[in-house]
Simulated scan of single mutants.
Amino acid sequence: MTQTRFAHIEVDDGVYAPQHDSLLLCEALDQVDLVAGKRVLDICTGSGILAIEAALKGAREVLAYDISPDAVACAARNAERAGVRVDARVGTLADARRAGPFDVVISNPPYVPSDTPLKGTGPNRAWDAGANGRVVLDELCDLAPELVTPGGSMLIVHSEFSDPPQTISRLQGVGFDARQVASQVVDFGPVMLDYAERLEAAGLLEPGRRTEELVVIRVDRR
Results as ranks from 00 to 15, higher is better:
V148G: 13
G151N: 09
T121C: 14
D163K: 05
F188E: 10
H158C: 12
A126I: 08
Y195F: 07
D194L: 06
E160W: 02
G189R: 12
L171N: 14
V185A: 12
V185C: 13
E197C: 08
D142E: 15
G120R: 00
A129V: 04
Q166I: 01
Q172C: 12
D187H: 12
G173H: 11
L155A: 09
E197L: 09
L137Q: 04
V181Y: 03
P150K: 00
V136E: 13
G120N: 03
A178E: 07
L193A: 09
D128T: 02
E197Q: 13
D128A: 09
E197K: 13
P145F: 00
P164E: 00
R198D: 14
E197G: 13
P150N: 04
R125I: 00
S183L: 09
L137N: 07
D177C: 04
P145R: 04
R125H: 00
L137S: 01
T121K: 08
E139V: 12
D187R: 12
G130T: 05
V148N: 12
D163S: 10
D187N: 13
R134M: 01
N124P: 09
W127T: 13
V181S: 09
G122F: 00
V185H: 11
L140I: 05
A196W: 02
G133V: 02
F161T: 11
S159W: 01
R134Y: 01
T149R: 14
S183G: 10
V186L: 08
A178S: 10
D142Y: 13
D142C: 07
D194K: 14
L193E: 15
D187L: 07
A126K: 14
S153C: 09
N124Q: 11
Q172H: 08
G151R: 02
N124C: 05
E197A: 13
N132Q: 14
A178I: 04
A126R: 14
V135W: 05
V136I: 15
V157S: 11
D163E: 14
S153V: 03
A178D: 09
V181D: 11
R198N: 10
V135E: 15
V186M: 05
V135R: 14
L193S: 13
T149H: 06
A196D: 08
R179A: 11
S169E: 15
T167R: 03
V174G: 07
Q172F: 01
R179T: 07
L193R: 15
F188A: 04
A182K: 01
V174W: 08
D177H: 13
E197P: 06
L155Y: 05
P150H: 04
P123I: 13
G175I: 03
L147R: 04
Y195C: 07
P164D: 02
V135G: 10
L155D: 10
L143H: 12
I168M: 02
P164H: 00
Q184I: 01
L193H: 11
S183W: 05
V191Q: 08
G173I: 02
R134W: 00
T149G: 07
P123T: 13
N132G: 10
G133M: 00
A129L: 02
V136D: 12
A178Q: 10
E160T: 08
V185E: 15
F161E: 09
M192F: 06
T121N: 15
F176K: 04
Y195I: 04
E160K: 03
L171C: 11
P150A: 06
F161Q: 10
I156K: 10
G130R: 04
V191E: 12
D163G: 08
S169H: 12
R170H: 08
P165D: 14
G130N: 03
M154E: 09
V186K: 03
Q180N: 14
L140W: 03
R179V: 06
